[in-house]
Each structure stands twice: as C-alpha cells, then as structure tokens.
Amino acid sequence: MEENFKVIDNYLMVRMPEEVDHHKSGFISKTADDYIMKDGVGNVVFDFEDTRFMDSSGIGIIIGRYKKISYFGGKVFAINADTRIKRTLMICGLHKVIEIME
C-alpha cells in the first residue's frame, strides 16, 4: 500500500485503491497525514485511476486532508475520476473546494 504514496516536489500523490470505503479510509488518511507532516508537502493529489467504487468514507478522507493543508494555503486535486466518482464528489459540493481535473 505504501507504494501508492509518492512525493513529487510540493505535491503528495495518493493513488486511491479500487474500492474506497470505511475499511480502507483509516489507513489512507493516516498515511497521507504522515507524509504531509514528514515531508511538509503543501498540496495533495488524489488519483482515482484504479477506483471503481467510493462511498462517503472517501469524502471524509478528502475533506480531512483539505482541512489540514488549506490552512497553510495548500490545494487538493482529484484526477482520473470516472463519472460515478465525479458524481459522488459533486453531490457533496466538493468541486467547490477542490479541483477536479481530467
């Protein structure tokens, strides 16, 4: 799982698993926070390329990281999200606080 986290310049890249649910969310949040603290990265990019399922636990992961880094002016990005993941993000209005990119 650790190989799904990579720091490039000032960005933490998080490759999200195939299924993002409560069972996986604790580990993702904790590991992401470790990187944010240890490497002092300013921005977080969530890559949904492999993700085929996400429930509200995924929203919790994103909002939690957003709260941590936006305090220091950092940004959160979501990339490679398919239409269903995008819909889930939009229902919560997340597109207003993070950047959803192709």
């Binding site: 969310s25 604790g26 949040s29 509200s56 929203i59 919790g60 992961i61 909002i63 229902i91």
Partner: peptide, 14 residues
C-alpha cells in the same frame, strides 16, 4: 474525530 463526512444517510437518500 473519525473523519466521518456525515453524508451516509444523504447518500442513501440520493
């Protein structure tokens, strides 16, 4: 504290 988004029932409804 567990980073629950509070969207569970809203998702079920949606």
């Amino acid at each position: 504290e567990l980073e629950r988004s509070g969207m569970g029932f809203a998702f079920m409804e949606a």
